[in-house]
């Protein structure tokens, strides 16, 4: 989907997290501003509590698509909401998101 006014792009990635599980990302982003518009995180990883994944998807909206900033933001969400990932981590999630840009 491409819109000339907003330069909204949609992309998909499949990323095997090192020592972890398979992560699949669907990303809608603003190419000009380098911002996340919408994000869907799917895959065969584990997260406790499970509902946290929707919280992460929401809180990452309007985030800058830069690795260090994404990792910092994801780690903060994990800490503030006592989320535990198994087979996934903040670095893996950030890398999966950024792979959509390649």
């Amino acid at each position: 989907m491409q819109n000339k006014c907003n330069i909204a792009m949609q992309s998909h990635s499949i990323y095997k997290v090192p020592d972890g599980k398979l992560l699949k990302i669907t990303l809608e982003y603003d190419e000009e501003k380098n911002l996340i518009n919408n994000l869907k995180i799917t895959g065969d990883f584990f997260a406790y509590p499970e509902e946290a994944i929707e919280l992460i998807e929401n809180k990452l909206k309007n985030s800058l698509l830069k690795r260090d900033e994404l990792i910092e933001k994801i780690n903060l969400i994990i800490k503030n909401n006592q989320i535990e990932f198994i087979g996934l981590n903040a670095e893996g999630l950030a890398d999966g998101i950024l792979m959509c840009l390649k």
Partner: peptide, 9 residues
């Protein structure tokens, strides 16, 4: 399927 998986995918 796992909780986080996309059914259609």
């Amino acid at each position: 399927i796992g909780y986080f998986q996309s059914l259609k995918e």
